[in-house]
Design a protein around this nucleic acid. Structure first.
Lengths: 349, 349
DNA sequence: AGCGTTCCCGAAAACGTTCCCGACGATTTT
DNA sequence: AAAATCGTCGGGAACGTTTTCGGGAACGCT
């Protein structure tokens, strides 16, 4: 239907050659202003759209960069992506977003699509399970720069931007210890809802938790470390119900992420425990929901905007100077202390 | 770096012609099995990737479909997109997602990108303000099928899938009236937080609200209709504070969406009003957060999965049969009644 | 008048692929 | 034995651009 207009149609209509039309459209210096104007008008009139495929075929650039994320239902990645788009659109790139539902095969398919679309660079946050490490390397070797953000593959040589999960988990737990001691508990029992072991970050946050306990002279009690199979609110509720059934009530809870903490908090409240007077609760990876709960949830916020922006910058650097060496940027988090952990904060809410 | 391998490289390495290689890769019947095998092995060995641009240039199909959404930070569109991807990937299409931050110019740019990338079809939920109506029509005229979902442009002939916002707003308000009457208030004062007038849906939901009042013999009191400038939690809180300052306390509140209702509910609770005993609250467009508030928020849920799936199906239909006539699918919503509006629901939480 | 410049433009190759057409030997049919 | 068919392959045009190269016209200069 309505066969697309080509450069040749314009040339024919104007009685000039297609080379001239091409030059006019590219706003080259060596074409007479009148001709240029005529071409532009005719192009407009014919609703001419350049064929990107023909263009990309001959220029070696596609001006496409690809993004691969595990999911974007949680607004976490969505926020990052927005920044990525902002940076690249300013530079005249198109951003192609793919999403793989935490599936390694889907991730592989997406990478393949991006490779075939000749993306000039790829930004990726890897899936929980199953690493496509070999593919990451193959892409880099074949000249497509790759930058990790948030979740990185440890043994691939590439730029990355992450936060120091160990450190911020450590800080979070230190805060819990301090606040419970202020409340007159010298040896508080701090529970941890640990993320699934396939997530590399789960181990890091656990180590931060354990080391904070040790530093402050508290035992690391394995019955207080609860392994969660997923990282949803439902799982948090389920696990807390199980703990309560076993009469295992901690003085504070450090969740792997916000949903786990929120689910647990809800169950605690329903069972009549007062937050934070009886149990202090703390999440990780600030989500929108942290401000909705009552009391509001303390959490570690990650600078998503800066993460997206720096990841984009690192990739841009690689694209413009392929020889640039790999850089690892570690961003700082923020410990947002609210009513769920600290009674002093309650009055502000 | 590492110039990509082409079909010609394979041909040269095997001492055969590139036509044969092309046919072998396409698994055509007229090439000897041994040759086929040799070609495939060599392709694998050389890490050959077909050049999509060259392919698309000559075949007239791109197998790309484009999605344009106003934002995907709210998980609302994210959920829809996941279904869209599911449908199209099963059919061998690639889904290209773009996002325009509620900006009409960005929307236009995205459409243009999709047009130039020769997308075979476009799924779109239009931005709040500034309609690119002319562009929608131009795309359709030039043979690119377009399907609206959720937010549609009224005066463009295209398939669409929406819910009946009028009807479900009506039901929501009927519920509020009924529940207040059960509580012994024959003439409850129902407030509405109305969305910005640029959003077409805001008008529909308001009409549903007003007609429900009228049907049940209640006056439509304009002082109870609050115009909000944005649709965020902060705005909901701000507006409710203003109402309370004016000592304007309704018996029930129907919010244009969940964030507005949640913000308002939070302020009400802080000021000491009991939900739902003193004020019943109801949202719209079920969000994750509705389950987090206490009490949980009553809301109208939209079947996001079905919406994504049907939108995709409608587009697929248009792609496969360009002459297919436009269809409008109106999906049913669900009235989720929870503790924020109905005291009877409180015990389940 | 001759020469060099400058300005504008056209011809044609190239990008990597698909596909039509024809060629060739081998096999089968008449 | 000649003709038709079959299986396999190569040559080359085409897709819509960009870009290199070269050439003609107009101009100013000696």
């Amino acid at each position: 239907m309505a066969q697309n207009k080509t450069i040749k149609d314009i040339a024919r209509a104007l009685g000039i050659s297609k080379s001239t039309v091409s030059r006019a459209l590219a706003d080259r210096f060596d074409v007479k202003p009148e001709t240029k104007k005529a071409v532009l008008e005719m192009a407009e009139k014919m609703h001419y759209r350049p064929n990107l495929f023909a263009q990309n075929l001959i220029k070696r650039r596609t001006k496409i960069i690809g993004v691969v994320v595990p999911e974007f239902i949680n607004s976490f990645f969505a926020r990052i992506i927005i920044q990525i788009q902002r940076v690249f659109e300013r530079e005249g790139f198109h951003v192609l977003i793919t999403q793989c539902n935490e599936s390694a095969e889907a991730e592989r398919r997406n990478l393949q699509l991006l490779e075939e679309s000749m993306a000039e660079g790829i930004l990726i946050s890897v899936t929980e399970k199953g690493r496509n490490t070999d593919y990451y390397r193959a892409l880099i070797d074949s000249g497509i720069p790759l930058v990790f953000f948030n979740r990185a593959s440890a043994d691939v040589a590439a730029s990355r931007v992450v936060i120091d999960d160990y450190k911020w988990a450590f800080f979070a737990v230190e805060h819990l210890i301090a606040v419970r001691r202020e409340m007159g508990q010298p040896m508080p029992r701090i529970m941890h809802f640990q993320g699934p072991s396939e997530i590399e970050l789960a181990g890091l946050r656990y180590r931060g938790y354990a080391d904070a306990l040790r530093k402050h002279g508290l035992p690391v009690d394995s019955s207080l470390v609860v392994r969660c199979e997923s990282i949803t609110r439902e799982e948090g509720a389920r696990m807390m119900e199980r703990c309560i059934a076993q009469e295992l009530i901690p003085d504070a809870l450090f969740g792997f992420n916000d949903p786990l903490a929120i689910g647990a908090m809800k169950v605690l409240k329903r069972k009549g425990f007062r937050i934070p007077q009886q149990v202090s609760v703390m999440g990780f990876t600030e989500s929108q929901s942290a401000l909705i709960t009552e009391p509001m949830l303390s959490s570690v916020a990650q600078p998503l905007d800066r993460m997206g922006e720096t990841a984009a910058q690192l990739l841009l650097e690689k694209i413009q100077h392929p020889a640039a060496e790999n850089r690892t940027v570690v961003l700082e988090g923020v410990l947002n202390i609210r009513g769920s952990s600290d009674p002093k904060m309650l009055e502000n809410e």
